[in-house]
Structures are given as C-alpha cells and as structure tokens.
Nucleic acid binder design. Structure first.
Lengths: 248, 248
DNA sequence: AGCAGTAACGTAACGATGTTAACTAACCAC
DNA sequence: GTGGTTAGTTAACATCGTTACGTTACTGCT
C-alpha cells in the first residue's frame, strides 16, 4: 500500500514547486506584484491548479511566510548561547532587524499587513506550535531571563509588556525603513546607527542603573563602533545564509 | 472677468466632493477596499470623471492624506506650549500614537506603505513646505530643544538620529498594533501601557542620569498611572476633535 | 449672432486581477 | 471492467485601474 504515500509525495512535490515559484517572485515583486497567473506560468501549470493546493492567494503566501517565521525562530534559538542576558537581547534585536532589512517583502507581508483571518481557531495549530509564536516566546523568555538576573529596574515586573515594547522598538526601525527609507525629505541616518541607537535607548531605559550595568557604553560612540555593528552583521550573515539580500 | 474664478471654484468644489467621498470610504474600507467606481458612484459621477481632477488613484489618496499630515503638524504645533522640553517630547509621542490609533487606515497608507513615486522633484514642493516634513521637523526641533537644555547624555549630539529613533519607537507601537493587534497568540497589553512604556524607556535612555532628571518616575507604575494616561487621552481628544474614532 | 476652442464629464472598452464552475483524464480499489 | 477519487485544465465571471474617444456646455472673439 505504498501507492498512497507516493501520491501524497507527488502532491507535496508540486505544492513545493508552487511555493518555490511563488517565493522567487515574491522576493522581488512583493505580495501585490505577484499574481496567481504569473506563479502558474512559472511552473507551467494552469492558474487554477494552484487552488488544488491552496485555498486562495493569501493562504499561499501565509504558508510561504510560515517557513520564514520558523527560520527566524531557529536563528533566535541559535543566538541563545550568548552568556550575558543583556547581550542576548541585543543580539535578538540585531538579528530581527537584519531579517527585516534582508527580506523587506517578507517582512512587509508578515508584520506590516493586517491578516484579518488570522484566528487560531483549532487547537491543532496551537499544538504543533505557531512559528510566529515561537519567535515571540523566545523573546519573552530572554526578557524573563534578564529580569530574573536582576538586570532591570525593580518596578518593571511584567515581562509581557516589556517584550511587546522591545518588539515594537525594532519593528519600528525596520518598518519605517521599508515604508519611508526612500523618502528624500528625511536626512536618514544609516539603518545600522538607528538600530544601535534604538537598542541602546530601550535597554538603557530598562536597566536598574547605568553604573552597575554590564552593558558597555553606547556602541554608536565608542571608538570601536564599527566593530560592534560589523560583528552583528557577520553573525546575521552566518545565521541567515540563504536569505536573499535585496538592499545594497 | 470673474467667470474664470467661478469656473475654478466649481472645479475645486467637485474636487472636494471627490475627496470627501473618498475619505468617507477610505476610513472604513482602506486603500485597497476603495475603488474608483465606488467613489464615483457615491457622488453620482462617472468613474472616469475622477481622472479629470486626479492623475490616478494613488494621487487621490495622497492628496487625502496630505490634509491629515497638515492636521498632524498643526496639532504638534499646538502642543509646543508645554513648558518642559521633555514633557513636550512625551506629548508629541502620545499625540502621534493617538493619531495612528484613531486613523488606522490613514496611518497605514501614510506610514506603513511604500510610495515609490514619492520624489520631491520640483523645488516648488520644497518651497511651500511638505506637511509630512513639517511634522518631522517639529519633532527634530523639540529634540534639539531638549538637547540644548542639557537634558540628554553628553555623547548624544546628533538630533537627527535621535529624532529618527524616537519616531521609529512610537511608529513601532502603532504599526504593530494595526498589523498584529488582532492576533490572538500574543497576550497584548493595553496599547496605552505599551505607549507609556515605550516613551518611558526611550526618554530614560536619552537622559543624562536618572536622578537629576526632571522626568517623573515611570507613569506605568506610579499609583496615578491611570491619570497620566487619561490626561494624554483628554489632550488628544481636545486636539484631534473631528478625527473619526474607529476603534472601540 | 455665429464661430471656434476649451474643458468637464460620459461611454465603451482594454488588459489584468482573484476566483469559481464544469469538465477531463488518469489512477486505484474492488 | 467499473466506479470513485482527484490533480489538473478550460472557460468564464466580477471587478479592478485606466485610456481613447465622443459629447456637451460654456466662453471669448470677431
């Protein structure tokens, strides 16, 4: 009775072919720029064949992005080896920004577009773990770690709101870059500087006191500023090797 | 020769009628949800009549949002009366978030959507002042004020990167709320809490030292936390009276 | 008064989109 | 062989932004 398995394998193969074609177009053209017909043409199928494998366009690209959510979560996990709890938070922030800048179209669809039908209706999806959730859960865990280590001010006791605020901070840097980075009426500073500044401000704001903290002085102004940023770059390049870099 | 004036007035009247109809639909349906045909139907015109007044759909809604850029800049100006330079920055942040939450569709189109053709090609547009620029310029001015008042750490000398980071911080709170606020796999804290936390962290991170600062202790945890937030609400409601409130 | 020109607006249509209904053809279980 | 399941195709629908072209009304000029 291996025939059923073969059929399923064949089906998931064309399903993957659709996903791959969609990804290739998606990276350069974005969600709006990709049409079902173009995807179909790329794999030499009829446009409607896609609907055998995916309910609609949205579900196709959600599936696509689920894969990258998972990748992001994996990369987060890999950065957990940083000894220092605060360094870990900084690393998470840098990796997240790197991810967004290297995959602007993914990021736009994943984090800058409302997905109304995004209900976790069945407990099934909760069981096998939502990758989106995994990445956030890891951030929350890292925040809790730093909190337990006594890094933060005493008043700050809610890891949830801290995580959400830290997420918002780096998300703000990325999404503003994606949406407004080409507007010439702002004398934009390098994205790297804005990232480091943001991480510096938020973490500094969390810390118990500037003196007894383990955080080094502002990397933007330390004379080895370039090194710190370059190090973050290298890390991200190692951890995110095959994500297409679309911007200089 | 008042006939020419009358013709122009008539033209700008129907132009305004188009804008009003478009706004009304835009507020509830968003950019993608509004079609030229629906706008035309609402004012009982032919769909193509709109193209006499606007080059294309994008220009229509850009014009629409220009009006709100200007309103935002005005509201920023009105908040300049805050005596304290730091309080002013906090107020700017609160007003900005309020604006975004009350006008999610506007905000999405204005700040979360890349506008490729957004070149300041002619010096003309630079002359009579881009309202987008005005709001940012005001923020930069407020940052410079606080810097000149000696509020910030000595190393922080670039008002530009500080402004861009502060902008990104509140933008992160808003845009994450708009894009992901309905996702149930995050135990979202109230948007007000996230806003105050963000303002607290970033400003605290900027300050010279926590002790000699004029900033009160974290409003989130002070026992009059509700008051502070409610105060911000009232201010925004006074300053943004006729902006439609779409959320709860 | 009559003519020519301008410009707002309408009609019809083009090409493209996401998506569905109906059909075909291959395959497997019985 | 027969019937049913299913990947895939063809044709079509509704809608979209947008353009070419025609119409109509009003203006300025002679």
């Amino acid at each position: 009775m291996g025939v059923k398995e073969r059929r399923e394998r064949e089906k998931s193969e064309t399903r993957d072919k659709i996903l791959d074609a969609a990804r290739e177009l998606f990276v350069t053209e974005g969600y709006e720029g990709v049409s079902m017909r173009k995807v179909a043409e790329k794999i030499e199928y009829s446009p409607t064949a896609i609907y055998v494998h995916f309910a609609d366009k949205n579900e196709l690209f959600r599936e696509l992005c689920h894969q990258d959510y998972a990748r992001l979560a994996e990369v987060f996990q890999s950065s957990a080896m940083s000894a220092n709890a605060l360094e870990r938070l900084t690393q998470i922030g840098r990796i997240y920004v790197e991810f967004g800048i290297r995959n602007p179209n993914h990021y736009k669809f994943m984090f800058m577009t409302p997905h109304p039908g995004h209900r976790l209706d069945d407990i099934d999806s909760e069981m096998h773990g939502n990758p989106e959730m995994d990445a956030y859960a890891f951030l929350k865990w890292a925040v809790q770690q730093a909190m337990d280590a006594g890094c933060f001010r005493e008043e700050l006791r809610d890891a949830e709101v801290i995580s959400q605020t830290l997420w918002a901070s780096v998300h703000g840097v990325i999404s503003l870059e994606i949406a407004k980075g080409c507007d010439e009426w702002v004398d934009w500073r390098p994205i790297k500087d804005r990232t480091e500044m943001m991480l510096d401000l938020t973490l500094r704001g969390l810390l118990k006191s500037p003196s007894d903290s383990t955080r080094e002085k502002s990397p933007l102004l330390a004379k080895d500023a370039g090194n710190g940023a370059a190090g973050a770059d290298d890390t991200a390049k190692i951890l995110l090797p095959d994500l297409p870099l679309e911007e200089k």
